[in-house]
Simulated assay, not measured.
Amino acid sequence: MLVVLRPEAEHELLEAQIWYESKALGLGFEFARAADAAVASALRNPFGHLRIEEEEFRRVLFRKFPYTLIYLPSPDELLVVSFFHQHREPGVWIERFNS
Rank of each mutant, 00 (worst) to 15 (best):
M1V: 14
M1N: 09
M1Y: 11
V3C: 09
P7G: 01
A9W: 07
A9Y: 01
E10T: 04
E10C: 02
H11F: 09
H11G: 05
H11A: 12
E12C: 00
L13F: 08
E15D: 12
E15G: 00
E15A: 00
A16R: 00
Q17V: 08
W19T: 02
Y20F: 12
E21P: 01
E21N: 06
E21V: 00
E21Q: 11
S22L: 06
K23M: 13
K23Y: 01
L25G: 08
G26V: 10
L27P: 13
L27D: 14
F29C: 11
F29R: 06
E30D: 15
E30K: 15
A32V: 04
A32T: 04
R33S: 03
R33Q: 13
A34W: 03
A35Q: 02
D36M: 00
A37D: 05
A38P: 00
A38T: 05
A40D: 10
S41V: 05
L43A: 12
L43Q: 14
N45Q: 12
N45D: 15
P46L: 08
F47G: 13
G48S: 08
G48I: 08
L50C: 10
I52L: 08
E54Q: 13
E55V: 04
E55D: 09
E56N: 10
E56P: 02
E56C: 11
R58Q: 10
R59Q: 11
V60G: 01
F62S: 00
R63Q: 14
K64A: 15
F65M: 04
Y67R: 00
T68M: 15
I70V: 15
Y71V: 07
Y71S: 05
Y71W: 11
Y71A: 04
P73K: 09
P75G: 02
D76V: 12
E77G: 03
E77Q: 12
E77V: 11
L79A: 11
L79Q: 11
S82D: 15
S82T: 10
F83T: 01
F84P: 07
H85N: 13
H87V: 10
H87A: 13
R88G: 04
R88H: 02
P90M: 06
G91A: 06
V92N: 11
I94Q: 12
I94E: 15
R96W: 08
N98C: 11
S99D: 09
S99E: 09
